[in-house]
Simulated scan of single mutants.
Amino acid sequence: MTDHLRIERSAQSWTFTLNRPDKMNALNAPLVEALLQGVDDAHASGARMLVFQGEGRNFSAGFDQGDLNSQSDADLLLRLVRVEALLHLVASSPCLTVAFAHGRNFGAGVDLFAACRHRYSAADASFRMPGLRFGLVLGTRRFGDIVGYAKAREILEQTRQISATEAADIGLVTRLVEADGRADAVAEALQVATLLDPATQQHLYRVLESGRPDQDLADLVRSASRPGLKSRLLAYVSER
């Protein structure tokens, strides 16, 4: 397990805190692998609720672009496939999944937030998904399922930033919750998570699951495997 992820465990609830505050909790490969293993372990333990949050000034800046020069297109593709695997694992979890966002959040960090069933946000939070600027399709259908496809198209084609207020208006954010209200929100969510017996809760989630993981993965790979991924990412980084 990496130092980049803190996990607090109880019999019913596991809390995952992204712990790269100096990098705005960007998702590097070790952090993604730690999250995948941690969520698998929580499922195996019989946990009823998973909570995701970020240390420092935000939830997550998304895909870590800090070491692009040392990586090939193939390296980057594998990392993105693992991110998609994480998103599907969280979105299809038999547990109630809860995320808290604050500060500025980008790309795969927004996708991880959107993969959760209860999505709480501080009023200072903002969300931006710039992946299409470098030709990447990640989390697009899931975002469209949440906010509606017309609204998703409008936001994504402009790659524009969404405020917490707008995110709440369109359904990306379930409720605005400040840091001092997180404990109460977690307690309320845990009551919901344990209201039904585990088998019934899992059946409910399966019936309502709109996910198409094979299609999501195919769309990601099709976009990321187009030659020049690294060059497009470097060009995007240089423009910021």
Score class of each variant (00 low, 15 high):
129 M>W: 03
94 P>T: 04
194 T>E: 09
209 E>W: 10
163 S>P: 06
130 P>D: 10
178 E>Q: 13
127 F>N: 00
136 L>V: 12
194 T>F: 01
111 D>L: 01
198 P>N: 01
203 H>G: 05
149 Y>A: 10
116 C>S: 09
140 T>G: 07
107 G>R: 08
107 G>Y: 03
153 R>H: 10
147 V>E: 05
179 A>M: 10
206 R>H: 08
198 P>E: 07
190 L>E: 15
96 L>E: 06
95 C>D: 02
149 Y>T: 12
121 S>T: 14
145 D>S: 07
171 G>T: 03
185 A>S: 13
116 C>Y: 06
133 R>S: 12
155 I>G: 03
126 S>P: 08
167 A>G: 15
180 D>E: 13
206 R>K: 14
101 A>I: 11
152 A>K: 11
131 G>D: 12
199 A>I: 12
193 A>K: 11
146 I>S: 05
156 L>C: 06
196 L>S: 11
206 R>G: 01
104 R>S: 08
157 E>C: 05
128 R>Y: 02
137 V>C: 08
104 R>T: 07
106 F>A: 08
148 G>F: 01
140 T>D: 12
186 V>K: 10
94 P>A: 01
187 A>Q: 12
123 A>V: 09
113 F>P: 05
174 T>G: 13
157 E>F: 05
160 R>G: 00
141 R>F: 06
168 A>G: 12
188 E>K: 15
195 L>P: 00
206 R>N: 09
180 D>V: 10
89 L>S: 13
136 L>Q: 05
107 G>K: 09
186 V>W: 05
175 R>G: 02
189 A>L: 04
105 N>M: 07
131 G>W: 08
196 L>W: 05
192 V>R: 12
154 E>K: 14
156 L>K: 03
99 A>F: 06
128 R>M: 11
185 A>M: 13
191 Q>H: 12
192 V>E: 14
150 A>C: 03
177 V>F: 03
143 F>K: 06
173 V>P: 00
192 V>K: 07
175 R>K: 13
110 V>P: 02
148 G>V: 00
114 A>C: 06
127 F>C: 01
161 Q>C: 02
